[in-house]
């Protein structure tokens, strides 16, 4: 059963990813990424990461992608021809990427870690992946990272206002 779910999820995720790279209209690429993220959330569920999967859908596919949709609609963007990047990059880029994939795969498959061949640790408690468990960890062990992440959000918001703010605000400042 999990095998079926995994393959469905994997094919959806890979298909979405390839569509993001291959689609000529940037708007379709954005929608392809949404599809990819939804299938990826399914895979997260298989890994017992329920909270992360839900957060991914709500935050990522929900909020971040909406920003993308708005900007893609506003900016439009060029409908660039498929293979028009500089000829060297067109050849070297995919070769480099394929080499990287082969290298990582060999590393994964050739690794001596026995745990990789299993279905995952047996030692997990009932609350693995629940919001309660993750919340507890965040407040106990990773408090500073949690606070730093919120500061990061503040800084990103300030940056966005500076960059994309209205010209009126800029004239006031000058």
């Amino acid at each position: 059963m999990t095998e079926v779910a995994f393959f469905v999820g994997a094919i959806g995720a890979i298909g979405g990813a390839i569509a993001v790279v291959a689609m000529r209209n940037p708007f379709y690429s954005v929608l392809a990424l949404v599809v990819h993220l939804v299938f990826l959330a399914g895979i997260f569920l298989l890994l017992r990461a329920q909270f992360i999967a839900a957060a991914q859908i709500v935050v990522y596919a929900g909020a971040v992608m909406v920003i993308y949709v708005f900007v893609a609609a506003y900016v439009g963007g060029i409908e660039e021809p498929m293979f028009d990047s500089s000829p060297m990059l067109r050849i070297v880029g995919p070769i480099l990427a394929v080499a990287l994939f082969v290298e990582i795969s060999i590393a994964v498959l050739g690794s001596s870690l026995t745990a990789l061949g299993t279905d995952g640790s047996d030692k997990i408690q009932g609350g693995f992946g629940t919001p309660e468990a993750i919340g507890k960890l965040m407040l106990e062990d990773f408090l500073i990272a949690f606070e730093a992440a919120s500061l990061l959000l503040l800084v990103a918001a300030v940056a966005a206002i500076i960059l994309a703010g209205r010209k009126k605000a800029q004239k006031e400042a000058a």
Partner: peptide, 15 residues
């Protein structure tokens, strides 16, 4: 690697 290829190949900053 698919993402990495995309960064190298595509020209539209949003993509």
């Amino acid at each position: 690697t698919i993402g990495f290829t995309g960064v190298l190949i595509r020209r539209n900053p949003v993509v």
